[in-house]
Simulated scan of single mutants.
Amino acid sequence: MNADVLNQSSNQVASVLEAVRNEALSFADRLHTIQGGVRLQGFDPHSFFEKAVKEAYEHLQDAFLRSRMCFGRRPDINDYEIKREFFSDLDCHHKTDIADLNITAAVKRAMSSLDTLLPSEAAENEVSRQLAARFNNEFRLEHKEVVQRGGFIVLSYGATIDSLTKQYDKRNDYSYHTNEWICKQLAVLQEMVVHFNRSTGKNQPTNIVTYYDLQQHTRALSRSPKVIDVCGFKLKFGVSRYEFHLSSEFAEHVSTMISLHNH
């Protein structure tokens, strides 16, 4: 989303919010002329507008984050203070009149603050930094030694077997927690492959398995590991361990990202 589109989105938010404010005031003024309006006397245009303000900020934030997307990912931001100031600017309960609120100015101020918080030129670095941190955490790389086997970098992790199926069905199934962890690793692996492709011009596959398919692969394990393809890499499931077999080029890309953004 370019600057013109983002500006158009913020203008639209301001226009809609102004329309909501005007309709709420108009409805409150017309209540005494509406048949059966006694039941609606509890309508409070201030509270109604307050809810609209909260929704308006969500739309502003969404438009801003879409404008800062890189590598198919939105950055995470801490905009608590910006949100608080936006609500304060449009806090009609402590203003003389809801009609006097300058909605356009409040929207422009919030968007300007968001732009200062994360300028467009810094968005790519921020997305890369956050992705590097997530990959490092989910794969626990700080506790891993580099193991090369057959021309691949191998990351090995312990697996927990479901005790109930082991006891009653005599079957080696991965536990719910192990499958959940693998799913999180697959999700961040996919994002990292997208980053790798767009950074290097490669065309590494980005396919991963669904949670249901993963469960099928992690059931009834034996001495011979099950092997599946994820993002063009091999993922091997054994009874007590599972392994990611990554290419050296991809592993080097990940290592470089983590070194650049987490130190």
Results as ranks from 00 to 15, higher is better:
residue 121 E to M: 08
residue 200 T to M: 02
residue 96 T to P: 14
residue 195 H to D: 06
residue 130 Q to E: 02
residue 59 H to C: 05
residue 78 N to K: 15
residue 69 M to F: 03
residue 79 D to S: 13
residue 255 S to Y: 10
residue 159 A to W: 00
residue 122 A to K: 15
residue 192 M to R: 11
residue 134 R to N: 14
residue 57 Y to F: 10
residue 174 Y to T: 14
residue 248 S to P: 11
residue 65 L to W: 00
residue 19 A to H: 11
residue 123 A to E: 01
residue 80 Y to A: 13
residue 37 G to V: 09
residue 83 K to V: 02
residue 151 G to Y: 12
residue 135 F to D: 10
residue 252 E to Y: 09
residue 209 V to G: 02
residue 215 Q to A: 10
residue 55 E to G: 10
residue 127 V to C: 05
residue 166 K to Y: 07
residue 149 R to D: 11
residue 133 A to M: 12
residue 188 V to M: 12
residue 227 V to P: 07
residue 132 A to Y: 02
residue 261 H to N: 13
residue 150 G to C: 05
residue 171 R to Y: 05
residue 263 H to A: 11
residue 36 G to S: 07
residue 120 S to W: 04
residue 45 P to I: 03
residue 115 D to I: 04
residue 72 G to L: 04
residue 119 P to T: 08
residue 50 E to P: 00
residue 77 I to P: 03
residue 128 S to E: 08
residue 65 L to C: 00
residue 61 Q to N: 14
residue 39 R to F: 06
residue 46 H to I: 07
residue 73 R to F: 03
residue 239 V to G: 13
residue 149 R to N: 06
residue 108 K to F: 07
residue 250 F to E: 08
residue 225 P to T: 01
residue 238 G to R: 03
residue 262 N to K: 14
residue 126 E to W: 01
residue 75 P to C: 01
residue 54 K to E: 06
residue 228 I to V: 13
residue 28 A to D: 13
residue 256 T to E: 15
residue 121 E to V: 09
residue 117 L to F: 04
residue 193 V to S: 04
residue 52 A to W: 02
residue 18 E to Y: 05
residue 114 L to T: 01
residue 171 R to L: 06
residue 243 E to C: 07
residue 180 E to C: 04
residue 245 H to L: 02
residue 128 S to L: 15
residue 159 A to G: 06
residue 98 I to G: 15
residue 175 S to D: 14
residue 223 R to W: 08
residue 63 A to K: 09
residue 191 E to D: 13
residue 42 G to K: 02
residue 188 V to K: 15
residue 19 A to E: 10
residue 118 L to N: 11
residue 11 N to C: 09
residue 175 S to P: 10
residue 231 C to M: 00
residue 93 H to I: 00
residue 30 R to H: 13
residue 13 V to N: 13
residue 93 H to K: 12
residue 116 T to E: 13
residue 38 V to W: 07
residue 219 R to K: 14
residue 239 V to I: 15
residue 87 F to K: 15
residue 199 S to F: 02
residue 195 H to T: 05
residue 215 Q to S: 10
residue 83 K to G: 08
residue 190 Q to F: 01
residue 150 G to H: 10
residue 18 E to S: 12
residue 221 L to M: 07
residue 156 S to L: 03
residue 195 H to Y: 14
residue 32 H to I: 13
residue 243 E to T: 03
residue 162 D to K: 05
residue 174 Y to H: 15
residue 262 N to M: 14
residue 231 C to V: 03
residue 262 N to F: 01
residue 23 E to K: 11
